[in-house]
Design a protein around this nucleic acid. Structure first.
Lengths: 149, 149
DNA sequence: GCAGACAATATGCACATGCTTATTGTCTGT
DNA sequence: ACAGACAATAAGCATGTGCATATTGTCTGC
């Protein structure tokens, strides 16, 4: 009696998404290393490239990092002139965070390398599937976690 | 000069896949806990449900686990009668691993709960997108990691 | 029969992560 | 001016993971 009684014939989503994520991150890591970036540092540059952020806690939150552990990443990025971290004149407790032109250049270079890898990967798919996949991935990855229940 | 020069207008795949994976695993965890299963224990049951496995190292490998750390998971599953671990009569170094009927029942119950959560999630998508997404996810997650370069 | 290979197991190190607590400087409401 | 809140920072703890090593029992080729 092989699974005729309602078991959907596919692996669990997490059982597929997890190895894919692992493989993607493993493929990104060496590309980022060529640019001297850790995964977290890259995540920070990506986030700041969208728009400046007003507090480090907000930045950490928005990239899913720990606000205490991200400090050394910011120290390093600032030291290399890739981000700016200036005290808010209106509230000297908070640090205004923004990417520098140099940081933007590095981010672009790293992302271009990653895109080449990704497009090579996606090129094996039919165009329709590729587009649907990216579209759905965008939607699902942006859902707040309360929606997963 | 805002990104008119070829930068694809979407987040990196890993930047979408990682939060999705996290959210899916976070949603699975409480469901598995109701059945007294850890993520690794569930992965073992899933894998053994396909077909028996001849060595523990092969099992660990095939679910992406560490062969030394999986031992206690197998101990526990065996203790609960969910898997069988018998010495291979032909080579007493190796343990033949298989799921028991009891293990299959538990696996089915857990997976049914997970499927309900997943279908609730996917039900917000157009049918075409949903199918394409699952199809692509299957293909990409099954690719050997050498293909990611 | 013995050396070398191999499976399962135990153990330890290094490292990253999530979480908590404490300190310091700064702001805000009263 | 002062108490309480808050941001950044440092430091600690428990956990989990990848990686390496060592031991024991067993097999295989010579």
């Amino acid at each position: 009696m092989p699974k005729l009684w309602g078991m959907p014939d596919r692996p669990d989503l997490a059982a597929m998404a997890a190895p894919l994520t692992r493989a993607l991150m493993a493929a990104e890591t060496p590309i980022l290393r060529e640019h001297g970036l850790s995964m977290w540092a890259y995540a920070v540059l990506l986030r700041l490239d969208e728009r400046p952020v007003r507090t480090q806690a907000a930045l950490a939150e928005s990239i899913g990092a720990d606000k205490t552990r991200i400090i050394s990443v910011l120290d390093e990025l600032q030291r290399r002139g890739l981000i700016e971290r200036s005290p808010d004149p209106a509230d000297r407790r908070v640090r205004l965070l923004s990417i520098t032109p140099e940081g933007r250049r590095l981010r672009d270079a790293a992302q271009a390398g990653i895109r080449r890898m990704e497009e090579r990967l996606l090129s094996r798919l039919p165009d329709d599937d590729k587009e649907a996949f990216v579209r759905v991935l965008r939607v699902l990855s942006a859902l707040p976690s309360q929606e997963f229940r």
